[in-house]
């Protein structure tokens, strides 16, 4: 670590240019420029903030997910937790509860769902992907059991403002929540002891365990936080749609994981940064927005995001191969 820091002192700019964050930041700019060329009069400041509405729910979820993946766990049940939280909020409201309390209950549901995942993963030592695969179906089913073939309509007007949906403020409330959370999570991961521990746990679980880090507790906390934010995301989505329904947020888990990986989070844990994830979230969001303005269909857009993901992950392999071949040639001559 000190070694690296010394190097940084010598060549801060060159070092920065080499980082993944910088690469995808350039990609983000490229996305902006291409969008600007393709649809010049549509890309205005009001539209830019407006556009965030369609992807903020996913973006806020990428933050805890990044921490979770860095610690070596993955949660693919997040979208279902979102739907379940939204539905339970709706059910509570319909039962006559004040909307504020209903929201709190929605969040609590998210938190406990996340904790349940965490307990099963850490206690029984089952791979997180399998546990959350099962939970994904289970939580989604809870929404259907509760609401079945109906949706809770007529949620109060002021609840609709939470989604920031069509309030006249310059920056949507949702987007402000995202920025706030990004700062909090960034601070947590990069500036606190807890953040360092997350990296250690993700880098080598056994070493961390032997050196006295409470691996399971850290992962449990992160699972809980992910569940909580998933609940928040579901509530924002419910607020934006204006009705609680069990079928919302389908496929969000894949979108969220894609953003995390594009943002430079290493799938096996131990590597990644919040800034990378934030940039990746913005980039994917604006790729979507730019293409949907051109009336490209959602599933076709996914060809682009999928392609981006593959290219992003092929770069290290290609680079190392290139470097190896250069070295080989030098060694040969």
């Amino acid at each position: 670590m000190p070694n690296e820091r010394e190097k940084k002192k010598r060549l801060p700019l060159a070092d920065m240019l080499k980082t993944w964050e910088f690469t995808i930041f350039m990609l983000l700019i490229a996305v902006f420029v291409i969008n600007l060329i393709l649809s010049p009069d549509l890309f205005r400041v009001a539209n830019l903030f407006d556009a965030t509405l369609t992807f903020t729910e996913k973006s806020i979820l990428t933050l805890p997910m990044a921490l979770l993946i860095i610690s070596g766990v993955i949660d693919i049940s997040v979208a279902s937790i979102s739907a379940m939280s939204g539905v339970i909020l709706g059910v509570c409201y319909k039962a006559g509860m004040a909307i504020g309390y209903a929201t709190v209950i929605g969040l609590a549901v998210g938190l406990s769902a996340g904790l349940l995942n965490g307990v099963i993963i850490t206690r029984l030592k089952i791979p997180s992907i399998v546990v959350t695969l099962a939970m994904m179906l289970f939580y989604r089913g809870v929404g259907y059991i509760l609401l079945g073939d109906t949706a809770v309509r007529d949620l109060p007007q002021r609840f609709g403002l939470l989604g920031g949906a069509y309030s006249s403020t310059f920056i949507p409330i949702q987007f402000m929540i995202f920025i706030l959370l990004a700062v909090i999570f960034g601070f947590l991961l990069h500036r606190t002891r807890f953040g360092r521990l997350i990296y250690i746990v993700g880098n080598n679980e056994n070493t961390a365990r032997y050196s006295g880090v409470r691996v399971d507790r850290i992962r449990l906390i992160l699972c809980g936080v992910t569940g909580l934010i998933a609940g928040l995301s579901g509530i924002l989505l419910t607020s934006r749609i204006g009705s609680a329904r069990p079928d919302i947020a389908q496929g969000n888990e894949m979108a969220v994981i894609t953003i995390c990986l594009l943002g430079g989070v290493y799938i096996f844990g131990g590597k990644g940064s919040i800034i990378g994830v934030v940039i990746a979230a913005l980039m994917i969001g604006y790729v979507h927005y730019g293409l949907s303005i051109l009336n490209v269909q959602e599933q076709v857009i996914r060809i682009f995001t999928g392609g981006l993901l593959i290219i992003a992950l092929l770069i290290p392999t290609i680079a190392s191969r290139f470097r190896a071949s250069v070295k080989h040639r030098r060694g040969g001559s």
Binding site: L42, R240, I248, S292, N295, Q299
Partner: peptide
């Protein structure tokens, strides 16, 4: 222009984009 997954969310996104257009 329409949602290819026939979903409510997809349709909302589509309307958002045609408003911006």
């Amino acid at each position: 222009v329409g949602p290819d997954d026939w979903s409510v969310e997809g349709q909302i996104t589509v309307i958002e984009s045609v408003i911006d257009q």
